[in-house]
Design a protein around this nucleic acid. Structure first.
Lengths: 142, 142
DNA sequence: CGAAAACAGTTAGACATCTAACTGTTTGCT
DNA sequence: AGCAAACAGTTAGATGTCTAACTGTTTTCG
């Protein structure tokens, strides 16, 4: 009915939207955008991951991943290796330049998260995480 | 530290991202996208609103609003009137075609919200709304 | 009053994502 | 063994948003 800031879906959208602005700003220094940052982080935690798995993890299209990784590769952050045993897929690895920005990236995301939780008590934060995780799980099967 | 689905910021992002996909899909029938739908709804509730106010409400850039409204106008959903008393601004009004899709739009967003809350009990929903509203408020001043 | 600043909207051009169609590789089945 | 289907990745072209620079209008103030 009276949406405009009152229903959950809309609240989530508003918060996330503001959050993305903050993160884009925080990442400015690195010259990367928010999604590139997340991707480098993820690759760092999953060296040798293939593009399809990145697409699934972030729910982005294959074409989007191709394009983003081409950018990261040509700027020297990562390397894509075609494997001997399966020429269909490419494994992704961080290069030194990529590893070098990880610290800065994770600081940016932590700061961003802090601006969110600072409005809540520790108990409330815990509650919120539980509720969100529940929703997130509920969204997955379909 | 171990982000990837565990911190609030990331959970919000994941949920919202899935949600936007659902909504885009639900709105498919109307030929509008999710943001156009929200905008029409908002105009319906605030007839005569000016573009700047829409930009503020959705936190989109003026240029983005211009472009979106040009689309909605040329497709006959809305009308933009320059006022006599202030030639700087344009007031936005729904045309019959715009009013005609409102019903469908709000059903789509309700459905979308339902897929979220169905994972929660009524009590949990209430809790969640309170927590999110708190965060949202906390984000506003800056 | 008149110039400067603030404001609302627009245009041009960049960028990230999307879909659809395609290439090349691997798997599965008869 | 060999063909069809599934799969991973790429390309081309569309769309939505952004920033920066611009136009035209209104407000402010010396």
């Amino acid at each position: 009915m009276n949406r405009f800031g009152s229903d959950i879906s809309e609240l989530l959208r508003q918060i996330t939207h503001k959050q993305m602005r903050t993160e884009t700003e925080l990442m400015q220094q690195t010259g990367l955008n928010q999604q590139q940052g997340r991707t480098l982080e993820y690759i760092g935690a999953h060296e040798g991951i293939i593009q399809k798995a990145l697409a699934d993890a972030f729910r982005l299209r294959g074409a989007t991943i191709t394009s983003m990784l081409q950018g990261l590769e040509s700027n020297g952050y990562i390397e894509r290796r075609t494997q001997a045993d399966n020429a269909r897929q490419k494994q992704i690895y961080l290069l030194p330049k990529g590893r070098a920005v990880l610290e800065q990236i994770s600081r940016a995301f932590e700061t961003s998260n802090d601006t969110l939780v600072k409005a809540l008590s520790p108990v409330e934060s815990e509650q919120l995480i539980k509720l969100l995780a529940k929703i997130n799980r509920g969204l997955d099967p379909e």
